[in-house]
Amino acid sequence: MTAAYWLTQLLNALQYSMLLFVLSVGLTVVFGLMNFVNLAHGTFYALGAFIGWSLLRATGSFWLALVGAPLLVAAIAAVLYGAMIARMQRAGHLAQVLATLGLVFMGVEVMRIIWGDFALDFAAPPLLQGHVQLFGLVYPAYRLFVIALGLLAMVALWLLLERTALGAMVRAAVDHADMAAALGVRVDRLFFGMFCFGCALAALAGVVAAPIFSVYPGMGIEILIPTLIVVVVGGLGSLKGAVAGSLLVGFVDTFGQVLLPQLAGIVVYALLALTLLLRPQGLFPARA
């Protein structure tokens, strides 16, 4: 166990955390803003990966896929919002959970119909295919790119939410939707925009994850669980919670597998149980 080994693990944990962050932030903002629970969030992640795969095959450009897939998924989310989500908003959490669970079941089948049952390979762009020498250790360039992208998203979202007029509106609507509406904020438009934005972020995560995990219909279902753990641990509805939750889950999961291989994958559930018992609202809930 050399220093390089631990550094590699550290970077792996960081890379997983960043992926979880980009996924969970959409889920948590939509909940904080609209009080809406979207179990189909993972489905948008998978959809992003598949659409990205098709774009990559059609155009040969990873970067086009990286930008195009989130946009297309946002368009799909917009249609879904009009058809279903908008009228589920006041239906209560249970109805939302069940209806979006229905979407999960349907989404998997739609992807099977369009793209088939088998895992699809997704090549990283040529620019990022090699390895990088870093403090005497060799690390895949693509994974460094994922870390950089996640950090970028973190900073951008923080600036967006804390430093812009739009962010002020979002924060106002999270705390007091009625008051914000009375002050002239078009809350319904804000909801619509944030829902599509959240889904686009999930799709972005899907494209980014594709070269690492490959692309298959069940990928959305698989990623949903760690994403939910992030949200529960971090606290629903806050950016801070998404950051803290994804770092905790990413590091606990990665180092749990390294240090306690016989309990592989279980350690993160202990983290979940502990949080639920000690801080049932999560570490940084949006509303105290």
């Binding site: 909940f31 629970v37 959970v97 669980i225 939910l228 753990i229 979940l272």
Partner: peptide, 10 residues
């Protein structure tokens, strides 16, 4: 929701 998400995870 926390109950639903937690049971889903467990």
């Amino acid at each position: 929701v926390f109950y639903i998400m937690a049971t889903l995870a467990f």
